[in-house]
Design a protein around this nucleic acid. Structure first.
Length: 472
RNA sequence: GACCCCGUCGUCUAGCCUGGCCAAGGACGCGACCCUUUCAAGGUCGAGAUCGCGGGUUCGAAUCCCGCCGGGGUCACCA
C-alpha cells in the first residue's frame, strides 16, 4: 500500500518520559491507529554522554504503561541511532559527491568570534561560507544552502510557515570526528524508515526548513509535517521539573489510570465538540491531527484528577481490583488474597477516590481494623449509652438471617424506632466503631462487605475500648 | 538581539477557513442550594471572557486586512 501512514516517536534517552513527550507519542500513535498505519519507535541516542540504557528502559516502560504499542522499534535492532552510523555515512558521502555538501575546517574559535560579531550586529548567526569552494576533503561536512529564496514548511497544524534562506546557514551534517549531527540523523532516519508524517514538538519548527533543504539535496520527497504545541507550566513557560512532577512514571505511581492519562493528554490541545471523556477506542476513531490546537496548553492537575476519577467510576470492579492491587504496599497495607473481597470493597469506594491511591486511603478500614477512633467523634458517641447501643446492635446482627444492605437498614430503622433515636445517630456510632472515623461509604454496604463476623469483632472491640477509656 | 510560533472565562477548549444563528457555548476548578445515615457521587443554579491592544474593511467582525503589545520557542562541530 503506497498511501500507508508511517509515523514515529523518537525520544532521546537523556531522561524519563516527560508528559510533553508522552503527548507527542500519543498523537503519533493515535494517528497511526486511526489510519491503520504503522507506529515506529526510534531511539535518538547519538548523545552518548547523556543517553543511558536505564533511561531507554524507563521510556519503553512508560509507553507500555500508557498502552502505546509500537509496530517497529526496540528490541528489534536497527532502531537506535548508534546502530545506524553506516547509513548516515553513506548519505553524507552522497551529498558530498554531488556537491550539495562540502568540508569545512574553520576553527571553532573563529566561528565563535563570528557568532559574537553577528550578535553585536543584531543578526542571526549564519556561517560565512568561507570553505564552500575550497574543495577540502577533511573537516566538518556542511550542507550547501541556497543564498536566496525561501523554504516553506507546510505544517498540518500551523499552516504554511515561510523561512527566508538569509536566516539559514550551511549547517553541519557530520562533525570533524566523523559523527553525524542530530538534524542530519533525523532526516536520514525519517527518509530510510519511509516516514510519511512527522509529528513532533513545536520546538523543532525552526529546524524544519534546514531539514527540508536536506531532503531536497538528497532527492527525497519531504514528509508531511505537524508541529504540536508545547505543554506549559502555570507560568506559561515550557513545563519542566521545576513545575513539579512531569515524568509519566510519577503519574502512574500516583495511581492515575493509564486510560485517564491518555484521555487527559489527548484533550490537552485536541478536542471533539463538547466531549471530555473518551475511551481509547473513541480516541482512535475520532482523532485527527488537523484538530490539534496550535497554541500551548497549561498542564492542569485538577482536571487530570477529575478525569482519573471519571475513568475509575466507569471501571469494572474486578478490573479495578487488579489495577489497585500494586498500591497496597504504597499506602502501608497488606495486599489481600481475596480478589472478590477487594472488588466488593472497591465497588463502594469508586465514588470516593480520584486515584488508585486515594481509593485505598479512603477505604483502608476494609483491609485493617481501626487502630484508634477519631477523638472528637469518640467523645460524642463512645459513651456508656453508646456502648449499650453497640451491644444492642450486636445482638440483632448475630441473629440477622442474611447480612444484606436492605436487611441491615430495616434492622437499624427498627432499632432506632425502639430506642427513640434518629438513624444518623446509630449510623455514626456504628461507623466510628467499624472504620475508626465518621466518613465512609454507606454504612449498610460497609457492613455487608465486612461481613457479620468481622463486623461483630469490631463492635466488640469498640465496646471494650469504651469500657476502659470512657468516664462514667 | 534575530528568526519562528502563540494570544477566547483562573485553566482546557468550541466558534475563526465558509463574517450575522455569539449581548460568546461546554468542561475543570470555585460558590450556593437540592438529594442524603456520614463522606462522596449526582442534580440545579451562580460568579467568571467588552474574544491581547489599536486602527481599518463592512449594514454587521471573536471571525477578514494592517500595525502594535505580551508570552513562549529556536538560534552549538547538544539532542
Amino acid at each position: 500500500m503506497s498511501g500507508a501512514v508511517r509515523v514515529r516517536f523518537a525520544p532521546s534517552p537523556t531522561g524519563h518520559l516527560h508528559v510533553g513527550g508522552a503527548r507527542t507519542a500519543l498523537f503519533n500513535w493515535l494517528y497511526a491507529r486511526h489510519h491503520r498505519g504503522t507506529f515506529i519507535l526510534r531511539i535518538e541516542d547519538t548523545d552518548r554522554s547523556r543517553s543511558t540504557d536505564e533511561n531507554i528502559t524507563a521510556i519503553l516502560e512508560a509507553l507500555e504503561w500508557l498502552g502505546l504499542d509500537w509496530d517497529e522499534g526496540p528490541p528489534t535492532p536497527g532502531y537506535r541511532q548508534t546502530e545506524r552510523l553506516p547509513i548516515y555515512r553513506d548519505h553524507a558521502e552522497r551529498l558530498r559527491a554531488t556537491g550539495r555538501a562540502y568540508y569545512c575546517d574553520c576553527p571553532p574559535e573563529l566561528l565563535e568570534r563570528e557568532r559574537r560579531a553577528a550578535q553585536a550586529r543584531k543578526e542571526t548567526f549564519r556561517y560565512s561560507g568561507r570553505c564552500r569552494d575550497r574543495g577540502l576533503d577533511t573537516g566538518a561536512l556542511r550542507l550547501r544552502i541556497p543564498d536566496a529564496g525561501t523554504t516553506v514548511v507546510n505544517d498540518l497544524i500551523h499552516g504554511p510557515v515561510t523561512f527566508d534562506h538569509g536566516g539559514l546557514d550551511d549547517w553541519i551534517l557530520v562533525r570533524t570526528d566523523g559523527t553525524p549531527t542530530y538534524n542530519f540523523c533525523v532526516v536520514v532516519d525519517d527518509v530510510t524508515m519511509r516516514i510519511t508524517h512527522v509529528i513532533r514538538g513545536n520546538d523543532h519548527l525552526p529546524n524544519t526548513p534546514k531539514q527540508i533543504l536536506c531532503y531536497e539535496a538528497l532527492g527525497y520527497p519531504v514528509p508531511e509535517m505537524a508541529h504540536v504545541s508545547m505543554i506549559l507550566g502555570p507560568d506559561r513557560s515550557r513545563l519542566s521539573k521545576r513545575h513539579g512532577a512531569t515524568s509519566v512514571q510519577a503519574f502512574r505511581d500516583a495511581g492515575i489510570p493509564a486510560d485517564a492519562m491518555v484521555n487527559y493528554l489527548a484533550r490537552l490541545g485536541w478536542s471533539h465538540g463538547d466531549q471530555e471523556i473518551f475511551t481509547r477506542e473513541e480516541l482512535i476513531e475520532l482523532f485527527d491531527i488537523k484538530d490539534v490546537a496550535s497554541s500551548g496548553a497549561v498542564f492542569d492537575h485538577a482536571k487530570l484528577e477529575w478525569l482519573s476519577h471519571q475513568h475509575i467510576k466507569r471501571m469494572d470492579a474486578s478490573r479495578l481490583a487488579e489495577l489497585v492491587l500494586p498500591f497496597f504496599p504504597a499506602v502501608g497495607l497488606e495486599p489481600p488474597r481475596d480478589h472478590a473481597y477487594v472488588a466488593r470493597a472497591l465497588e463502594t469506594l469508586k465514588e470516593r477516590g480520584k486515584t488508585f491511591r486515594e481509593l485505598l486511603q479512603v477505604g483502608s478500614f476494609y483491609f485493617e481494623r481501626p487502630s484508634g477512633y477519631a477523638p472528637e467523634a469518640a467523645k460524642m458517641y463512645f459513651t456508656e449509652a453508646g456502648a449499650a447501643r453497640l451491644a444492642a446492635i450486636s445482638r440483632r446482627l448475630e441473629t440477622l438471617p442474611s447480612v444484606t444492605p436492605e436487611a441491615l437498614e430495616s434492622l437499624y430503622r427498627e432499632l432506632g424506632e425502639e430506642l427513640g433515636l434518629k438513624l444518623v445517630d446509630l449510623a455514626q456510632l456504628t461507623r466510628l466503631a467499624l472504620t475508626g472515623g465518621t466518613a465512609s461509604p454507606p454504612l449498610f454496604e460497609v457492613l455487608a462487605v465486612l461481613g457479620r463476623e468481622e463486623a461483630l469483632a469490631r463492635l466488640r472491640a469498640a465496646q471494650a475500648w469504651i469500657a476502659t477509656t470512657a468516664r462514667p
